[in-house]
Design a binder for these strands. Structure first.
Ligand SMILES: [Mn+2]
Ligand SMILES: [Mn+2]
Ligand SMILES: [Zn+2]
Ligand SMILES: [Zn+2]
Lengths: 139, 139
DNA sequence: TCAATAGTTTAGAATGGTTATAATGTAAAA
DNA sequence: TTTTACATTATAACCATTCTAAACTATTGA
């Protein structure tokens, strides 16, 4: 829970101009206690519910990608028909329920750390992501 | 290395009609010693190089998805602009080089087994996939 | 044999998630 | 101010993927 002037500051500090559109998107993404997962379409839906001033779809894409680059949101690597993002930027992994198309955080304590015992010459590791796909248990 | 009549049999045994298109796709995917990773577009490219009879893009999609369902290919969960598939269907994880857009198999021996110490009520685990993103090491 | 029928497969056309780019806005320089 | 360079927005286009109608194939039974 934060007020608009703090988003203005946050944006300016990251080298992003604090435009009306970006502040609104900040509000929808960050003005909440809980973090959450979202698709671009779900975000557009949330925005249009909370304001009358329309923000174009492309601007939402631009902004989310800018925020991703700054580390304010993360993209979750599942192959769905659309991309999933996460306002929880701490290091954590995910369950993905393909029938519900639902992402669920996996507590860091509930996954043993992954150990990679090899490397590729000239490359360094940027991230390690685990996706645990689940399905209905009909036993 | 296998001949066409064996693909015919393989297809029939899986309940898929051994059409011209599917046999050709089998040849391109499986008539090789090494397994490999591919996108649909790369597969279409390979097909058109090895035959004059054109197979429509939609048919390639249909066939790859049918083969995926039968377990003859796997889909790799990276978020790229297009889906990646793998003719190596054994359990293994991947490096992904985002700059080269290149997938590299991670030997099973080089990753400690992942242990998930929690579960979702009514759901069972279908798969566990690790993607290790790498970038150029400029040190 | 060979229609008639039902189910399967193909592929052209449409969809829709995403991005390229032209128009617009903003701020620093002159 | 005016000029200039750069940043941002949002329309229009792209293209990966899927829908669906047409073509094909196997089965049935006369
Ligand atoms: Mn898919
Ligand atoms: Mn993306
Ligand atoms: Zn999460
Ligand atoms: Zn592989």
């Amino acid at each position: 829970m934060i007020n608009n002037s703090q988003y203005t500051e946050k944006l300016r500090n990251s080298g992003l101009r604090p435009t009306k559109q970006r502040i609104k998107i900040c509000e929808v993404l960050f003005n909440t206690d809980k973090t959450f997962h979202f698709t671009i379409n779900e975000l557009v839906e949330k925005i249009s519910k909370s304001t009358n001033h329309k923000i174009s779809l492309a601007t939402v894409y631009n902004t989310v990608h800018a925020f991703k680059k700054k580390g304010y949101v993360k993209e979750i690597p599942i192959n769905s028909d659309q991309s999933y993002f996460d306002t929880n930027t701490s290091h954590h992994h995910h369950f993905y329920d393909e029938s519900q198309k639902d992402l669920i955080d996996l507590d860091e304590a509930d996954v043993e750390p992954v150990k990679i015992n090899t490397k590729i010459p000239g490359k360094k590791i940027k991230s390690v992501e685990i996706i645990v796909k689940v399905e209905d248990d009909n036993t």
